[in-house]
Write a protein that binds this DNA or RNA. Structure first.
Lengths: 168, 168
DNA sequence: GAGATATGTCAACATCACTGACGTAATTCG
DNA sequence: CGAATTACGTCAGTGATGTTGACATATCTC
């Protein structure tokens, strides 16, 4: 039952510091929403969701990744990971290989089907990024990368940058 | 039961076009995760989640917003919105006022408590953004804004830019 | 007055995350 | 060698957030 009249304090001027970059805050929200929205539609064809996408993406980016490494990247619990990973394995998009040096570990690899799907998704995202960069100066990509890196928690930043810089 | 040996196709070279900007793709993921992570912790103190944050944010940004306008911004169903909005109203962070011109409409406003919370959250995000911009050239903010706008679906871009440019 | 519009609500369901507990196999270390 | 630790798997329960579909109510428009 909505109130017909104002009930409590009716919103004085928001005291919104002019120093708050509302545009950058909201653009990140809208951009992220649409950036993952495209892949979502493709994933739905396979009965997958965003969580599957993330797993598949990082498995392709780091073939041979272990469960522990993947958990550290995604920052979710092993129970959460296990559910989607199991589905990806059972449907033949990812395979697990028992470690040679350490047999407790499972090294993750994408199958051919997994690569096809991941590539389809990443191309979609790459196109969107390239379209956005097309209108900007050449050095914009580097500026944006530095900005986004700056948004990452300082405690995590090193790890992420190491990941991005890694050989491959 | 993980396979001890490779089972199906074992991952040929990923054919990953060098044209795929993996860094920008992944940085957006990590940056977004940490950008919303901070507010999440504060919201949890109130028993709220991200959905509440988004509603509160846009209500503060556009006082007097109607339900339909909010739905168009958030791109969720009215049922999803209603649950979190109801909680925000019942706990006294948002109030609804029946429209004067059109009595079917509900105009949303933040209460004083709603403003306090929203301001607390937005300051956290503003700090993070300013820290990220601090290391960059002055024109970086504009570059980043253009880039993020470019990631938005072309069909939505106009609406969003109109929203951001609006008098406030 | 009829039909469209704005909102509210009920019910069922899916996804993705969480906590907590426990099991098993393999490795490490004293 | 034996105990502790590590890497992973799994069961059970829960919560937040989204969905579809159907229906109700008040109000506005024509």
């Amino acid at each position: 039952m909505p109130q017909t009249q104002a009930r409590s304090t009716p919103a004085a001027p928001p005291a919104a510091d002019a120093t708050v970059p509302y545009d950058l805050i909201e653009l990140l929200f809208f951009a992220y929403r649409d950036f993952v929205g495209g892949p979502d539609l493709i994933l739905a064809e396979y009965g997958f969701g965003r969580a599957h996408h993330r797993v598949l993406h990082f498995v392709l980016r780091r073939p041979g990744l272990t469960i522990a490494e993947l958990l550290d990247i995604l920052k979710i619990t092993k129970q959460s990971l296990n559910r989607v990973l199991k589905e990806l394995v059972e449907t033949g998009f990812v395979e697990q290989r028992t470690g040679v040096q350490d047999k407790r570990q499972r090294h993750l690899h994408a199958t051919a089907a997994g690569q096809d799907l991941a590539l389809r998704l990443v191309r979609l995202q790459a196109q969107r990024i390239q379209a956005a960069l097309a209108d900007l100066a050449p050095e914009a990509a580097e500026t944006v990368a530095q900005y986004l890196a700056g948004l990452i928690d300082p405690s995590e930043r090193h790890k992420v940058q190491g990941f991005l810089a890694a050989p491959r």
